[in-house]
Design a protein around this nucleic acid. Structure first.
Lengths: 160, 160
DNA sequence: ACTATATAGTCCGTATACTGATGATCAGTA
DNA sequence: TACTGATCATCAGTATACGGACTATATAGT
């Protein structure tokens, strides 16, 4: 593993960039200007109405300083509303707007197509194995990230 | 593949961030302040002395606007020198300095340790399979990136 | 030789990421 | 109740990424 090309970190960095590029192209072709990061946040607020930013960040493994800007832009696009929580004045409560929900639905096919393209270089069985290993490797290292994935509190889940 | 957690793009994004965090921690513990991106660039200049920025960018799949800043910082740290090419005045010729070479050597163990940790959640056979699939999936999509990997011109290679 | 095109590097603007710091607020405890 | 420590959100600063534009220079074609 002496050469950079063979290092997992290098390959993952390349694939991540390709992923962002494909998402941008597919969603752009569908007529929307939304990043993959913004999509994930919007999608989670849709399934967890009234979520606060810190919990949202935990659900999609974003850093807390990153989520501020992401939500800023989603609010500015009119896809999210942000209000001070009534039960905890430190927290900001997020809700998806009608426009946000409409955008989410229209974008859905482009998002699925993106994931399909991402794996298009692999055979069916290889795709399944790749996803399994990707999930296993990532979850094993979850706590090494500044932004680890955190499960939602019991009773709050509403994923489709 | 309806949920974000199961999408390849999401998992790859998380693993990429974990990768950067591990690299930062390992290299930092070794007493150096160098990013994984800077390391890759430095390493390539070491094996390809006199390379120009565009070719370097192609070898490590960086965007040409990104490489400018990366090289800026490596020059500022004293690890690289940058001069106008004598055969093509548009191009900038890069050379690694003695300090750069020394840093590269001292960092090497931390880099290898990073890659080992990256795969530590998988068994030996799984690691090999994961790397194979990662390589296959990435190379199949190479041209979809704004910064595709480009082979060096014949006769120029000098990889270890 | 001249022109059209392509390429190398840079700059501007925007969007993640993350380190470290801060203010506001909350929860637990003496 | 007053104090302590934790948490939520934000901000400043730095480093990738990349779209788009620009200058300088090289090359291909006529």
């Amino acid at each position: 593993m002496q050469q950079i090309e063979e290092m997992p970190g290098h390959l993952i960095r390349r694939l991540q960039q390709i992923s962002v590029a494909i998402f941008h192209a597919e969603v752009g072709a569908a007529g929307f200007d939304l990043t993959s990061v913004q999509y994930a946040a919007l999608s989670k607020v849709n399934t967890h109405p009234g979520i606060d930013q810190a919990t949202l960040a935990g659900l999609i493994a974003y850093d807390r300083t990153t989520i501020t800007g992401v939500v800023d832009r989603l609010v500015q696009k009119g896809f999210l509303s942000r209000q001070v929580s009534e039960t905890d004045r430190r927290a900001r409560v997020l809700e998806i707007t009608r426009e946000g929900r409409a955008a989410l639905e229209k974008i859905q096919p482009a998002v699925l197509e993106t994931q399909k393209i991402m794996l298009s270089g692999l055979s069916e069985p290889e795709q399944a194995e790749f996803m399994r290993l990707l999930e296993k490797a990532t979850s094993a290292l979850n706590d090494l990230s500044r932004a680890p994935l955190k499960a939602a509190k019991a009773g709050t889940e509403n994923d489709r």
